[in-house]
Amino acid sequence: MIEHIVVSIIVVLSIIFPTILDGVERKIKARIHSRIGPPILQSWYDIIKLFGKEQVMPRNSLHAVMLLILLTITQVFLIVYTSVSIIFQITQFDIVVIIALFIILQTIFISIPLTIPNTFSVLGGSREIALTLVNEALFIVIMGFFIYYTGITSFKQLTQLSPTVYLLILLLALFITGYVSSGRIPFDIAEAEPELASGLMIEFSGPILGVFLLTFHIRRFFVKFFPSILFLGLFIHTPISLIIAGFITTIILWIIYAVIAAILGRSRVDLAPITLLKIYLVLIALSIIGYYLKV
């Protein structure tokens, strides 16, 4: 019974909370800027306001709108599926299902801007592709190594694990992919405001923009939540404590990421993927060495 209550609370929170966390991030950023900053609920005010605005449909944008709805539904489904499968094992291959869903999600995400006939939108989309080819592709590789090393494919099996150096290195790489996927500086090159005028979301307005932002916040939450669970699974072996600890870790991570984003500048589309690739390859190589040395 308590499990049901916890999982429902976590599911509801993981949809509502990301937008509040965005407010927290803005507040932290403001503090680093030496100013007061918006109220913590500001991001929610923004989204509610957007739902009350007129819907201006961009030209030839039916595809974009449909894809966006698909994106939102998949994203919500993904977060619900993750939360539920941590406590109640749904299949033997929960982690694999989540990886697959995430990749589908990413594909939808990068195809939205490409369907909008706006130069900035298309440019933002193609930049997102360049980044995805490194970041999300490496995400799969890293998860592949994780499954290969440990042989686990669902959260239930995490209890069998104990922390080793090579796993920790792999998880560090996973956290970095999470940082990049969350579209923060220096890797926000797709929506780089001064260059591309908000890039991939330039043509959205009103409720559609609201839905997009909401989805984006949930996405940011997910890319931190998932590595946190895998990481904490090494130490915590009861599902309920794991999910609650995972939730709290995500909030802490969000704050750390916010600080990192505030003190860095934006990278460039030809620099970012190469830098990332170097980092990932080094980390993966280290973990392979570690695996064979059994440390």
Binding site: H33, P38, K49, K53, E193, S198
Partner: peptide
């Protein structure tokens, strides 16, 4: 928008596209 005045505390945000603007 800068620290001494900080319009963001009123929920004011400068956006890059008129489609987002109020």
């Amino acid at each position: 928008l800068t620290p001494y005045f900080d319009a963001e505390r009123f929920g004011v945000k400068l956006v890059a596209s008129p489609r987002h603007a109020d």
